[in-house]
């Protein structure tokens, strides 16, 4: 750093800061170089990539309209999977979020358990959860709903738990001082403060789940992915094109809907 005696020396960071940052940069650089060098990329595949891509789009157009009734049916199923999955996830995540929030639960063991459930839920992708649930419940929408639900618990629980921890202590202490019961404190103290966060989290996750549930069918967990899987296996690219266009439209609509709701409630 600087002293009055030697004013010309000026460094942006303290030595400790410099070391910390440099370490991160160096490790990042090593990681990238290591990855790039050991990964095998077959150049021959790259040469005809533009051709293949052009070919892909040519085969997609015109869409196979005859496939539409089936696409529509699976699309509706996708919507149900995403929505039910989100509702189910919220029902399971809310109690856990209260367990995980430091200002609500004082027992460290309980908090730690809730955190562990969140991390496990988030670490495993919804597609992998779907694999497990298909093995248990057989192919179909049930597996889809459960995999969406289980995958979303961690997301909803973690974010809502954080929102709870940010809740101001003042109103809650005031309620506690009146001798209110724990459920009363919860409904009149925490809920009003965290409700906007709750809806924003729920909407955000629902939006994500619409996208996620579109692929679950690839492993047999229902929804539009089933139609996609069938089309891909048969190499019917004109059907694939139709499905992708449908998903694109749904995603755009979902985005518009969620953002308009969000602007109204938050």
């Amino acid at each position: 750093m600087t002293t009055r005696g030697d004013p010309k020396i000026w460094l942006r960071f303290t030595p400790a800061e410099r070391i910390g940052r440099s370490m991160v940069y160096i490790i990042a650089a090593i990681a990238v170089v290591w990855s790039a060098r050991t990964i095998e990329i077959i150049p021959e595949f790259l040469y005809d990539a533009p051709q293949q891509t052009a070919d892909l789009f040519q085969r997609m157009w015109p869409f196979d309209i005859k496939y539409w009734p089936f696409v529509w049916k699976t699309l509706v199923e996708t919507f149900h999977i995403a929505t039910l999955g989100t509702i189910l996830a919220i029902m399971m995540a809310l109690p856990l979020a209260f367990l995980a929030a430091r200002n609500f639960t004082s027992n460290a063991m309980l908090r730690w358990t809730a955190q562990f459930i969140f991390v496990s839920s988030r670490s495993v992708n919804s597609l992998i959860w779907a694999l497990l649930f298909v093995a248990i419940f057989g192919p179909g929408a049930v597996a889809g709903v459960l995999s969406i639900a289980v995958r979303s618990i961690g997301f909803v629980g973690k974010l809502f738990g954080e929102a709870l921890e940010e809740a101001q202590a003042g109103p809650i202490e005031a309620l506690t001082a009146t001798g209110a019961s724990k459920p009363a404190i919860l409904i009149k103290g925490y809920w009003p403060q965290t409700e906007p966060a709750f809806w924003s989290i729920a909407l955000l996750r629902w939006d994500i789940n619409i996208r996620e549930s579109a692929v679950l069918g690839l492993v047999g967990a229902g929804g539009i992915g089933v139609a996609l899987d069938a089309a891909l296996n048969n190499l019917y690219w004109d059907q694939v094109g139709l499905i992708l266009a449908t998903i694109l439209a749904v995603v755009v609509i979902t985005e518009i809907v969620t953002s308009s709701i969000r602007s109204r409630i938050i």
């Binding site: 750093m1 600087t2 002293t3 009055r4 004013p7 010309k8 000026w10």
Partner: peptide, 18 residues
Amino acid sequence: IARAFELLESVGLGADFA
């Protein structure tokens, strides 16, 4: 940098603020 330190001095803050 030297001038910046001078200015820091002359606006009444001193090098500790750098």
